[in-house]
Design a protein around this nucleic acid. Structure first.
Lengths: 342, 342
DNA sequence: TATACTTTTGCAAACGCTTGCAAAAAAATG
DNA sequence: CATTTTTTTGCAAGCGTTTGCAAAAGTATA
C-alpha cells in the first residue's frame, strides 16, 4: 500500500486475537474457515472481527502462501465491445465468488504479453483468464511449466490439457452460410479475422466447408484477409466491391469488422440489404444499434466469461479436480442487414 | 500466489545477491534506484538480474512498505463504451509508467462500493481512480480520512481539496444548444442523465442556460428524466413524441441514450434528421457507426483517463506536490443526425 | 482413576522485500 | 600519514499472514 495513511492504524489479526482473547493463529484459522476451532471461540473471534472491522491484508496473505483471491485477466484491448461482454460475465461470476480482478492489457505486443505473464505468475493473482490470445504459445508454456492455473477463452489451442472455453466457431459460420446459400446467394464474399487465432481460422473453415458441402466453388478472390478490426472490414469490402462480379453478400469475421463493411457499402451509395447483404459474427450489443440492424451469429460472450471463470475457480479450489473444456453453441440471428438474393 | 508452481523456484533478491556477490539490501537498492550504490556494483547487480531473469514479488514489496505499483480503478460497469474509452486512456498511461491495474466494479450497489474501498485501502493498490460515482460521499470520506491518494473522473464534487478530472459539461451542452437554436430549432426536447451525477446536472444546466440566454421559454414538458442508459432514451423519446406539439430535436444526455432515442424515432416511422434531429453527448466510437451518424459533443474521454492517471501517479511519486484539478474542454461534432429546422 | 487417544490451541518459522542504523571503505582534509 | 568526513555496504528487524509441530486440554477406554 502507498505510504499515506497517517492516522488510523490498520487492524491486524493480532488486534483481533487480543480482543477475542485467543492466539493470532486461531484468528487466522477462523478467517480461513479451517477446522479444529471450538465453536465458541470461533464465535468470539467473529464478533471481535465485526467489532473492530477487520479486513485481511492480501499481500501478507499471499506472501505467506495463502491465496490472494485475485484472478488476472489478460486481454488484448478493451475497446471492441466483444471484450466488454466477456468481461461482464467474468465480473459477474467473480463478484459472486468474492474474487478481485487484475487487468492486464497487451495491446497485441508480444513482449508485453510475456512480461505480464511472468509478473502475474510471480504476482498476486491466483489464476489467469486469457481472452483470445494471438500467439499464446510462448507464454502458455511458461504457465504450463509452472503448473499455473489458467483458462483460455475463445482460443482453441492444440494442447488438450489446457482448459478452454470456446464457442462453436466453425459451426456458427456454417450456419450463417447455410442460411445465405438457401436464401439464394451464390457469390459470398468473406473477410477473415486474424488467422493466428483459432476463432479466425475456424470461421473461415466454416465458410469453406459450407461452400463445399453445397457444391459451390471456393473463389479465392472472394476471400479477403483481415484482422477482426473495423478498418479491415472497410478495406476488405472495398476490394470485394471492386471485383468485376462483386458478391451479393459479405460475411465478415466479426461484428466490428461488419461495421466497417457497412461503411464501405454505404460509401458506394449501395443499399443494405437490397444491393448488398451483410452478416457479422459475435452479436455484440451494437449489432442491434446500427442501421439496419446486423444479421449475425450470436456468441454467448457473457456466458463464455462466466463459464471460464467458474472453471478457473473450481480448479483453484481443488487443483486435482478433473475439468473439461467447454464448447458453447452459437445461434444465427437474422436481422435486416441481409436478405434474399433474387 | 496460488499453491501450484511445483518445479521452478522463484528467483529472489537473495539469489541475485549471491550471483552478484553483494548483500541483498544492495540488490533492493538497485532495484529501487536508490542512491548510495557504487556504479560498478549497480552494474553487476543489473547483469545478475538479467541473467537470472529476476521479477520482483509485489506482495513482499508492498508488505515491506514499498509500493505495489498497482493502481485501483473503481467503476460502475464496463459495458457502455464510455467507460471503455476512459479506461483505454488510463491503460495507456499506466502501461507507460509501469503500473498495473486492479479493476473493481460496483454495479451501482452502494454496499459493494464501500466494501471495495476498504479493501483497496488496505489492499494492494497505491492509489485509486474513480469513474463517475453516483454518490461517492460515503466512501470518499474514508479515503480522505486515511489520506489515501485518489482522483475522481467525471465527477465534480464540492470539496475542492479532491483531485478531479472533468470535462466542461455545461459548456458542452451550451454549445450544442447554441448550434441547434441558430439552426432554427425552437422546441428542443431534453432527456436528462442521472441527476445525482454532476455530469447529469451540468448538462441540464447548459440546456437551461442556453434557452434563457436566447430568450426561449423553459418548457418542463420538454424535459424528460433519464439515467444515461439506452432504455431511458427510448422512453423519454416516446414521451416527447406523444406531446401535442413534439419538439423538432431531441437532445440526449449522452450517446447511449441518444441511440435509444433513435430507436424510438425510427419505430414511429420518422426520418432522422428530416422529421427529428437528434444530438448526443460523449462522442463514443459507436456514434460514427450508427446511421445516420450522430451529432454529439465530443468529450475527450481517453484524455480524461490519461490526465487522471497522470495526476494520480504524480501524487504518488510526491505526496506533497501541489496539483490542480483539470477541466478538459468539449467540442461540438456535427454529423448527419441533426439538421436545420425549416 | 490411570492411560491412551483425539481435538484444540499456541508458538515460531517462513514468505520476499524495504529501510534505519551502524560498520566498513573510500575520499578529503590538515 | 593520521584524522575527519563522506560514501558505500551489510545486518537485522519488521511488514501481516499461514501453517507444521508440539503442547495443552478434553474425551473415551480399560
Amino acid at each position: 500500500m502507498g505510504q499515506p495513511n497517517d492516522g488510523l492504524k490498520d487492524i491486524t489479526i493480532i488486534d483481533i486475537a487480543q480482543e477475542a482473547g485467543v492466539s493470532y493463529s486461531m484468528v487466522s484459522r477462523v478467517v480461513n474457515n479451517k477446522e479444529h476451532v471450538k465453536p465458541e471461540k470461533r464465535e468470539r473471534v467473529l464478533q471481535a472481527m465485526a467489532r473492530l472491522g477487520y479486513v485481511a491484508n492480501q499481500q501478507a496473505r499471499s506472501l505467506a502462501g495463502g491465496r490472494s483471491n485475485v484472478i488476472g485477466l489478460l486481454v488484448r484491448d478493451l475497446t471492441t465491445g466483444y471484450t466488454g461482454e466477456i468481461i461482464r460475465g467474468i465480473d459477474l461470476e467473480l463478484t459472486a465468488q468474492q474474487y478481485d480482478l487484475m487487468l492486464y492489457t497487451t495491446h497485441n505486443r508480444k513482449t508485453r504479453e510475456m512480461v505480464h505473464v511472468t509478473s502475474i505468475v510471480r504476482g498476486l493473482a491466483d489464476g489467469l483468464l486469457i481472452i483470445l490470445p494471438t500467439q499464446p504459445e510462448s507464454y502458455i508454456n511458461t504457465l504450463r511449466q509452472r503448473n499455473y492455473p489458467f483458462v483460455l477463452i475463445d482460443y482453441q489451442g492444440q494442447d488438450t490439457e489446457d482448459l478452454t472455453v470456446v464457442s462453436a466457431n466453425q459451426q456458427g459460420a456454417y450456419q450463417a452460410m447455410q442460411y445465405l446459400i438457401e436464401a439464394g446467394h451464390r457469390r459470398i464474399g468473406f473477410i477473415t479475422g486474424t488467422l493466428e487465432t483459432s476463432a479466425g481460422t475456424e470461421r473461415l473453415a466454416g465458410y469453406k466447408v459450407a461452400l463445399a458441402n453445397y457444391g459451390l466453388p471456393i473463389d479465392p478472390t472472394l476471400i479477403q484477409g483481415g484482422d477482426f478490426l473495423q478498418p479491415s472490414g472497410y478495406q476488405g469490402a472495398q476490394k470485394l466491391l471492386d471485383l468485376e462480379v462483386p458478391p451479393s453478400v459479405i460475411f465478415a469475421s466479426n461484428d466490428v469488422q461488419a461495421f466497417g463493411v457497412m461503411e464501405a457499402v454505404r460509401d458506394r451509395g449501395l443499399r443494405i440489404p437490397q444491393d448488398m447483404s451483410i452478416v457479422g459474427f459475435d452479436d455484440i450489443p451494437q449489432a442491434t444499434q446500427v442501421h439496419p440492424p446486423l444479421t449475425t451469429i450470436q456468441q454467448p460472450l457473457e456466458d463464455m466469461g462466466r463459464v471460464a471463470t467458474r472453471l478457473l475457480i473450481q480448479r483453484l479450489q481443488d487443483p486435482h479436480v478433473s475439468l473439461a473444456s467447454v464448447v458453447l453453441s452459437t445461434k444465427l440471428v437474422i436481422r435486416q442487414s441481409s436478405g434474399l438474393f433474387i
